[in-house]
């Protein structure tokens, strides 16, 4: 089984899993403690519009996805304040609109969209070198931004009203957080696909939350759990010849269920 590691495609897959886990451990922690799971779902499905646009224009679909996720994040963040809409409503609108745009673009693009299925459900075993580079850049941006703004982001996600009273730039910080979610989603598309993104974003952080009362520790555990889940999933899928994205999610879900069944007993 370990002989798999001598293949470049397999090394790339493990590396992509590690990079994605770093991003989703850090950002997933905020998603879980600030209850932004549905927003993340909206952003990730909006990415499909960008994938479609990428096919249509003949550019890298992931770059299209990057544009759409960031655009969706900014649109939802702005509209929530400017148009006084419920986030819930905006999520529904953005979620479906993104998917619809993607479907239309793919329909009007001549020819066949070969790895469409990969974008929807992930195919980490086929991550090209160029995508690894994109992921590396995104991880660097995420780690750096959270490192610099850590105390502000904690204050805003902990108590938004109080953060406003002490005159922190609350709206801007929440927009930044949404954009960071958008970047993370793009990384995870490669690993588990648009449809399964929210599970990998939330499950490691949700398990980690059961084990610690500190944001920093929660991030660290979530990263480590993410690496464990993706690596296990990659090995299992290669070994059993089953879809990698689904395997990673099921490994994560099984671990989450295990922690819930043991009811906090495992950690304390």
């Amino acid at each position: 089984m370990l002989s798999l590691l001598s293949y470049t495609f397999f090394q790339n897959a493990v590396l992509a899993g590690i990079l994605a886990s770093i991003a989703c451990g850090i950002i997933g922690t905020f998603v879980v403690i600030r209850r932004m799971v549905a927003v993340s779902g909206g952003i990730s499905h909006a990415a499909f519009g960008g994938i479609g646009l990428g096919y249509f224009l003949g550019i890298e679909p992931l770059l299209g996805a990057l544009g759409f996720t960031v655009g969706a994040a900014l649109t939802m963040g702005e509209l929530e304040h400017r148009a006084e809409q419920h986030m819930d409503t905006l999520i529904g609108a953005i979620w479906a609109t993104g998917m619809a745009i993607g479907i239309l673009f793919i329909y009007i693009t001549p020819g066949f969209a070969p790895d469409l299925f990969g974008y929807l459900f992930g195919n980490i075993l086929l991550v090209p070198q160029s995508d690894l580079l994109l992921m590396l850049v995104l991880v660097a941006i995420i780690v750096l931004t959270v490192g610099v703004l850590f105390n502000d982001l904690v204050a805003v996600t902990f108590d938004e009203e109080y953060a406003t009273v002490i005159n922190l730039p609350v709206e801007r910080l929440l927009l930044i957080l949404l954009v960071l979610i958008a970047l993370t989603v793009v990384m995870l598309i490669q690993v588990v696909g648009i449809i399964l993104v929210i599970a990998l974003l939330t499950l490691p952080a949700a398990i980690s939350r059961e084990c610690t009362g500190r944001v920093r520790t929660m991030m660290l555990y979530a990263v480590l759990l993410g690496i464990a889940f993706t690596t296990t999933g990659i090995f299992l899928s290669a070994f059993l010849n089953i879809p990698s994205g689904a395997t990673i999610i099921l490994v994560s879900a099984a671990a989450y269920a295990g922690v819930l069944v043991r009811k906090h007993g495992a950690c304390r």
């Binding site: 403690i33 105390n151 204050a155 002490i166 922190l168 944001v215």
Partner: peptide, 18 residues
Amino acid sequence: DFHYPISVRQMILSGLLG
């Protein structure tokens, strides 16, 4: 939200951020 994973001291410190 008292379920937020933050220590008492960290919470107090956030009062100085402004």
